[in-house]
Nucleic acid binder design. Structure first.
Length: 376
DNA sequence: GTTCCTTTGAAGCCA
DNA sequence: TGGCTTCAAAGGAAC
């Protein structure tokens, strides 16, 4: 990312990203100053919500109103605690991350379609976000609730693998529905993970840890199951018992994707657009319009997301989701289609190079999106 | 029912 | 090492 430059050093981030966080001592202090003193994230979120309300877009505003009521009460003390938790989680990697309240626990909803803030979603997330919510939690797969201060009697745990401190979780069975018999075994190093979040075998990480990034091998995410924090589909399940397929672990979201998740609803409300392609164009422009500090927040979130993903799925590779077409359609057919898609894309690129026919959205981009909408 | 569209960034692959 | 490709999210449109 051109906006963020400096040198590497992080074992997880890409070059450009590493750059931005290389001098963590200095830069992160700046980031923290900017992020927390200039514009507190909670305030930012609230202002966004207010904007949406002002715009009076019925659907989105309603959704945001709901969020607002949940998020308004984000207490400073909770943020302070989360800061401490984050530092522990980072194992000293980050001195003062811009998003100190990074929710360390992967809950099912964030990687799930319904966890989105999209106004079109009318389902209720399993995550109770009514209190102690991180300002950006709505776009994250995690909930701070479950990193809430551990009961004093519960010691922090140390990941055997990474040496990263982890909090023992409270019993969250009151928060989530428990799949019948879904309480899986918990490996010692992951014993901090809430029992109630254990998925059935189909949605289970090899370590026995469920993760929202795990989606059914059918490709398209099955929202209902994940709304309940588990992947259970009785009818299909019987088929799967016959041919068990590897659950799909999705890629962690990058900074822009996190930004999109958070801002999509706002753009929809403001622009009354629904086409994702058009909305994404607007979001792309807005992304570029962000200051480095604002972008840094999302880069930091994304970096932690990747880090957590790596801790949960050390053997996972992005390659796992290549070729099988796991993001779209599943199965052998999709493997066959992959070659076609690849060929199509190549042809498309050639078309664009040679001035081939323009897509509807290309036309839309130039004609239908008013300039002022792109500047919102 | 499936694929496309559109965006940026991370990561894999290949020359 | 650099360039290319795929995939992550989203949901309406097109097929």
């Amino acid at each position: 990312m051109p906006q963020l430059s400096s040198g590497g050093g992080d074992d997880l981030g890409a070059n450009d990203e590493m750059i931005s966080f290389k001098d963590e001592g200095e830069q992160e202090e700046k980031i923290q100053e900017n992020a927390f003193t200039e514009r507190d994230l909670a305030d930012l979120k609230s202002s966004l919500v207010n904007e949406s309300e002002i715009n009076q877009s019925p659907n989105a505003a309603a959704v945001r109103r709901g969020q607002q009521s949940e998020e308004r009460g984000f207490p400073d003390k909770h943020r302070d605690h989360l800061e401490g938790v984050s530092k522990q989680q980072d194992g000293g990697l980050y001195k003062s991350p811009a998003y100190s309240g990074y929710p360390f626990l992967m809950l099912p909803d964030p990687y799930l379609p319904n966890s989105s803030v999209s106004p079109s979603s009318n389902k209720v997330s399993v995550v109770q976000q009514s209190h102690g919510m991180h300002p950006l939690t709505s776009l994250l797969p995690y909930s701070n609730d479950h990193f809430s201060p551990s009961p004093p009697h519960l010691p922090t745990d140390m990941s055997q693998k990474t040496g990263v401190h982890r909090h023992q979780s409270q019993d969250l069975s009151g928060y989530y529905s428990l799949p019948p018999g879904g309480v899986g075994q918990i490996t010692p190093s992951m014993s901090w993970f809430p029992h109630s979040l254990m998925l059935g075998p189909s949605g289970m990480h090899p370590t026995g840890i469920p993760h929202p990034a795990i989606v059914p091998p059918t490709g398209k995410q099955e929202h209902d199951q994940y709304d309940r924090g588990m992947y259970v589909k009785p009818q299909v399940e019987t088929k799967r018992e016959k041919e068990p397929k590897k659950p799909v672990i999705k890629k962690p979201l990058n900074a822009f994707m996190l930004y999109m998740k958070e801002m999509r609803a706002k753009v929809i409300a403001e622009c009354t657009l629904k086409e994702s392609a058009a909305i994404n164009q607007i979001l792309g422009r807005r992304w570029h319009a962000l200051t480095r500090e604002e972008q840094a927040k999302y880069y930091e979130l994304a970096r932690k997301e990747r880090q957590l993903h790596m801790q949960l799925y050390p053997t996972w590779s992005a390659r796992d989701n290549y070729e099988a077409g796991l993001s779209g359609v599943a199965g052998e057919k999709n493997k066959a289609d992959w070659g076609k898609r690849k060929r199509r894309k190549r042809e498309k690129q050639q078309d664009s190079n040679t001035g081939g026919k323009r897509s509807a959205f290309a036309t839309f981009k130039e004609e239908a999106v008013p300039a002022q909408l792109l500047q919102i």
